[in-house]
Design a protein around this nucleic acid. Structure first.
Lengths: 347, 347
DNA sequence: TAAAGTTACTGAAACGTTTAAGTGAAAATG
DNA sequence: CATTTTCACTTAAACGTTTCAGTAACTTTA
């Protein structure tokens, strides 16, 4: 099955390949008669010609491809994007990219693999990095001289655009909300705290709120594990076992919070009667469960859209100055927090 | 920034580009001395050479890219893969692809766009199509002479491999389970029923089970809308409004079932006390909610893995005969179904 | 010892584009 | 009218690979 090339179109239209290329790409420099343009388009239609992107990339060094890296941080779980948070993010990135004529080269990454190779050998135009990476790997990406956008990573390197939220403030808001409702012993439940990552900042916010209220930090109230449902369950059981008297927990992700609530139920207790819970993210599932989860809302779709847009702008405008985008967040009150100041709470 | 090409490597190693290519791709025909091989690898390492995939694709017509299409069927919702079902599927596809040296070209598709163009112009090696498509679009894909795997579509065309489950049997099992528990008036709640799609088959199974039990089909018990959480809520309210006396509902997706349960709660009633629910998919969320959802389990990860493997095998073995893969499913009992034969049910 | 075969390479065309530089004809200028 | 400018193209090199078809230099065979 012979494929249709620009030469075939040129022959059919009775012009040179250069002319066809100029017509199709509308290079402003060149002037081409309306009649010729029409003949070229006619030939394109008749032959059902589709330009070959590989040939294009080869010469123009632009693949119209945006690389998306989603690291696999938890070895047990196969992939992070089965988590709806990453799914939504990916959706938004894809949509924005497609609207602008780009496509997505998707790659999960295991620690032993070097994403740079993929990006380089495919002439990727830009990269969106989701989640926290060892800075050594980021340094390699930096060499490539293409726009790179980091989502949810705290680095101040001039080479990277970043997009995120104020995780510290989110942590503060969540904890402060619990304090305002009369809680004094507040557990902190989180996935692993890695350098430059979001959980570190959320932890800072937690500490700050406690400090402000004059509540001493107690290491016994820290539950640090993975960022999935199962660890949430586990943390709840551990909470029961440790008996530190917490009346509330700030759980740094909704997925984790769902697990925590389930775990509390498993131990025969109930949320918010026996323990109040505030989550983080405000995923769709936060309103699905019973009780509805009080949580910090962030706009995941906007996060993805912004990231993609930043890459695209970076491609168009070479040497665009570094952008650091912080999206707004807010607390959403549902039913998972009990007001300790009221004597009774309806069940 | 000059990039390193095969010519640079050849010069550095003191051989021709052909030799470098033979060394790197290990073409069996050619015999190359151990010493030369060593010299080439040394040069590759020293220059940090990475072969350019665009140039490779151009000549070999293989991009080492697998296209993944996830259609956007509900105009309101931005993307289907924020749904965990699609997320997990994508995860599995990606992992399998990557293990085999392939990458993913991800594209959501709006009805006005022709995916074929993307696939053709990027020399995609194979395509995984997720979800149900108008057959006209599939026909276009067919022309391309690359392996195509359809997930969750019922077509018998020789050109497509398929992978799915017995949706009809799943529908039957779910309904039969409810009948076995003593239910006679059973609602059918589903996303839109499209030709060649899974919901159509699940509906068939529903009808079959009813028929077998001598229960007449009642169109008043059908709730057909979208496949998302919000329609689930809506369906529950409608159930209350219609007053058809259903004691149970077969809801053809877990996401939808979650919404349905929420809706039932909103109307002041409770599952399974006032209505029993069986879902479909057995997503992670099915065990998160309260009550845990009785549902039909399918192995999403295996679905994705199989699909990717089928594409890869198809690329390796040109003209591989059509594969039709049906994965096993089973019912998972949790707490969302009430046994009508027992007088009392614990609350 | 001449012919044939093997080994370890090399040369160069080809893949399908883009784009800088060139060109002949018509139009505008002095 | 001769020159310059504009118009509407064309020519051909270049991008970085793969791979077919050689080709010297050895080695084996008859």
């Amino acid at each position: 099955m012979k494929r249709v090339s620009i030469k075939d179109v040129a022959k059919e239209a009775g012009v040179s390949t250069a002319t066809v290329s100029y017509v199709l790409n509308g290079s402003q420099q060149e002037t081409i008669s309306a009649e010729t343009i029409e003949r070229v388009y006619k030939a394109v239609r008749e032959l059902n010609y589709i330009p070959n992107q590989s040939a294009r990339s080869l010469i123009s060094r632009s693949s119209k491809l945006i690389g998306v890296i989603i690291p696999q941080t938890e070895p047990g779980k196969e992939f992070m994007f089965s988590n709806p948070f990453y799914g939504s993010l990916l959706s938004a990135i894809e949509l924005t990219a497609r609207k602008n004529g780009y496509h997505l080269l998707l790659s999960g990454t295991q620690s032993d693999q070097r994403y740079v190779n993929i990006a380089r050998n495919r002439d990727v135009d830009g990269v969106v990095v989701v989640g926290t990476y060892p800075s050594k790997q980021l340094d390699e990406l930096k060499q490539m001289d293409i726009p790179i956008v980091l989502i949810d990573t705290y680095v101040t390197d001039e080479a990277f655009h970043t997009i995120g939220i104020s995780d510290r403030f989110g942590g503060y808001m969540a904890t402060r909300h619990l304090i305002d409702k009369g809680h004094r012993r507040i557990a902190f439940v989180s996935g692993s705290i890695r350098e430059h990552g979001v959980n570190e900042k959320r932890y800072r916010g937690y500490c700050e709120a406690l400090n402000e209220a004059g509540i001493p930090l107690d290491e016994q109230l820290l539950y640090i594990g993975a960022v999935d449902y199962d660890y949430g369950i586990q943390a709840a059981w551990e909470w029961r076992a440790r008996k530190q008297g917490e009346t509330a927990a700030f759980v740094t992700s909704d997925m984790l919070a769902m697990g925590f609530i389930k775990g509390v139920k498993q131990t025969g207790l109930s949320v918010p009667r026996d323990i109040s819970v505030v989550g983080f993210d405000d995923l769709e599932i936060a309103r699905m469960t019973d009780p509805g989860l009080t949580t910090i809302h962030q706009d995941v779709v906007e996060k993805g859209r912004c990231a993609a847009q930043l890459v695209i702008d970076g491609v168009r405008e070479k040497g665009m100055s570094r952008q650091e985008n912080i999206l707004p967040i807010h607390l959403v009150e549902r039913e998972s927090v009990k007001d300790m100041k009221k004597e009774k709470v309806n069940d």
